[in-house]
Design a protein around this nucleic acid. Sequence first.
DNA 1: CGGGTCTTTGAAGATAGTCAATTTAGGTGG
DNA 2: CCACCTAAATTGACTATCTTCAAAGACCCG
Lengths: 244, 244
Amino acid sequence: MSNTPHLKPLRTLCSSCSLRELCLPVGLNRDEVEQLDAVIRQSRVVKRGEYLYRSGEEFKSLYAIRTGFLKACVSSQDGREQVTGFYMSGDLVGLDGISSNHHGCDAIALEDSEVCELPFARLEEIGRVIPSLQTHFYRLMSREIVRDQGVMLLLGNMKAEERLAAFLLNISQRLYSRGFAANDFVLRMTREEIGSYLGLKLETVSRTLSKFQNDGWIEVNHKHIKLLKPKELKELVSGCAHQI
Amino acid sequence: MSNTPHLKPLRTLCSSCSLRELCLPVGLNRDEVEQLDAVIRQSRVVKRGEYLYRSGEEFKSLYAIRTGFLKACVSSQDGREQVTGFYMSGDLVGLDGISSNHHGCDAIALEDSEVCELPFARLEEIGRVIPSLQTHFYRLMSREIVRDQGVMLLLGNMKAEERLAAFLLNISQRLYSRGFAANDFVLRMTREEIGSYLGLKLETVSRTLSKFQNDGWIEVNHKHIKLLKPKELKELVSGCAHQI
DNA sequence: CGGGTCTTTGAAGATAGTCAATTTAGGTGG
DNA sequence: CCACCTAAATTGACTATCTTCAAAGACCCG
């Protein structure tokens, strides 16, 4: 789509990235961000449907998402698939690969995406030199653990309607914090992928969305969702200690 | 129970700890373990039913479990409780607190336990000095993420029997790797706590255990469990990519 | 514009949850 | 050390929720 030809592949820099306040550079000063710039190997484009990495592949790098939307999923031998997360700009993916030096899940683009490759070994090195980066990185890993615990609460305790309400609010809040409209957005994933993430069948997801629409809480136009009564959705999930 | 009076509280050292090969010191040389020893503030006893920490409390330390058994759980405002994990000797708890400087869940002893307190700030410091400790620590955090993903797969995709089989095998394997019998053990948690962890009601847990017993796969005597046909249990959960 | 994917909706069926009654175990205190 | 008492576990009957199976309709990309 771009009309701007360029001779070299575009070099992406944290220091000039609009995601500075969301992504890894949070809390770093100018010098530190420049050191971080030196770590980024390159930015990489992943087309819709393509794998960023596959389960079992050797783990070398984390990826910071610049633009686009990805899902992570673990697949079982007999074909069952569990979506473990959806990731958007500013999110960091691949943290599960550190433990065994092999990726533990697949990462698949749900729309054309661009990611920054961060070789983990280099990240470790500069973490030792920039304590604030290291601290921030520990926090990011811990945040992933907290997020997963929230999903466990959702999967273990909540009914279909509560799960879907929590899901919609979570997407809404994340888009909002990235400067998009909170109550009017387009889902990038299928009903089946939502269902997999929420531990529901796609028919249940569809039915529940229809019910919310009939109640006047949301407006559904295929993947285009409008939250008409976010407050009611929040009340539905309230009682759950953590949002996902 | 101890007949050995001592004037000072017992100082516990990694270098003389029988859990060296399971716990944080994995892969460290003698010098490095001694540096780690200097970090441990003290060992602390948590009686059955007591809290090691509570959700919302300020996060200062991680805890390595020396002896005993704990559960971690997130509680919701309306009283719903989700057990997010069971922890035994050599396990590290509290990782979820790093992200916000506040503990995100409760940690409660299911039997009298002894833990080593590891002030996180000091752990960060020596991580910068001992790269292998830092790498190992990243791995531990990542392992927690992988574990949580396994639980998500379990909660999202598996039926009651599969969940319980996976649970029994997980406990079995973890006890085995600590030198205990794999097929003959005592559960430290109630049916309700198992159910909370697995996203099932306690009655379902009880019924499913009874069914396994009727099938001759296990022998149940209250909390005492014998696995008679672990192979059949494994076949039941096979197809799931990751054990929890 | 057309084929395949995605979605919606209905009806029937299965799994797990709820409610309830009984039994058992294990800790506490005398 | 024993007896009591409370908490935990088992089991049954019924119900709710979600899944499964099925068919039809809508969209979107090439």
